[in-house]
């Protein structure tokens, strides 16, 4: 599934080729407070080489690097918004799991609200029609006859 990981594990399991690709050995440990904020930020950022996963959920190397950057920036005193903005500068809108409200996402954000508004107005409109249009017969003569027969057979 993930080529880089594949090669690495084959190497491990078969005890053959070495792959010193990843220099970073143990991820540095950050204070819990940073960690908590970092996770909130991470859940908003897409691992840009993955299939629709956040950097927190992904096992890809790039996601690990991005997670580290998020933590380093937060530890350096950046706010969550600043970290997200920084990531956006670097990777574009694509990195944001929650798309920004801007020209090309107007339909996306307004669509559901407008649709609900239309539906609700339609609902209210249907309610008002009641007084104008009262009961309409929906049974045909044939059906009425059959209904009558059924009623008689039941009673």
């Amino acid at each position: 599934m993930r080529p880089a990981g594949n090669i690495a594990l084959i190497a491990i399991l078969l005890g053959s080729l070495a792959s010193p690709a990843c220099a970073q050995a143990t991820a540095p440990v950050f204070p819990p407070e940073i960690e908590e904020r970092a996770r909130e930020v991470g859940a908003q950022l897409r691992c840009v080489v993955c299939q629709n996963e956040s950097i927190e959920a992904s096992n890809a190397d790039l996601a690990a690097d991005m997670r580290l950057v998020v933590r380093e920036r937060l530890a350096a005193g950046d706010t969550k918004a600043e970290v997200i903005a920084r990531m956006r500068d670097r990777y574009g809108d694509y990195v944001l799991l929650k798309p920004p409200v801007q020209a090309n996402t107007l339909i996306l954000w307004a669509g559901p609200v407008v649709l609900l508004a239309i539906f609700l107005s339609w609902w209210i409109f249907s309610l008002q029609r009641r007084s104008r249009k009262l009961s309409v017969a929906t049974l045909s003569d044939e059906e009425r006859a059959r209904l009558e027969r059924l009623r008689q057979s039941q009673s």
Partner: peptide
């Protein structure tokens, strides 16, 4: 809404060439 969110990135990329993501937070 789910339809819009799912297919919107395709729509944006096809019309403007811009790449956006619509993920869980949306």
């Amino acid at each position: 809404t789910v339809f819009l969110g799912t297919f919107y990135p395709l729509f944006v990329e096809a019309t403007t060439g811009e790449k956006i993501t619509v993920g869980a937070p949306y």
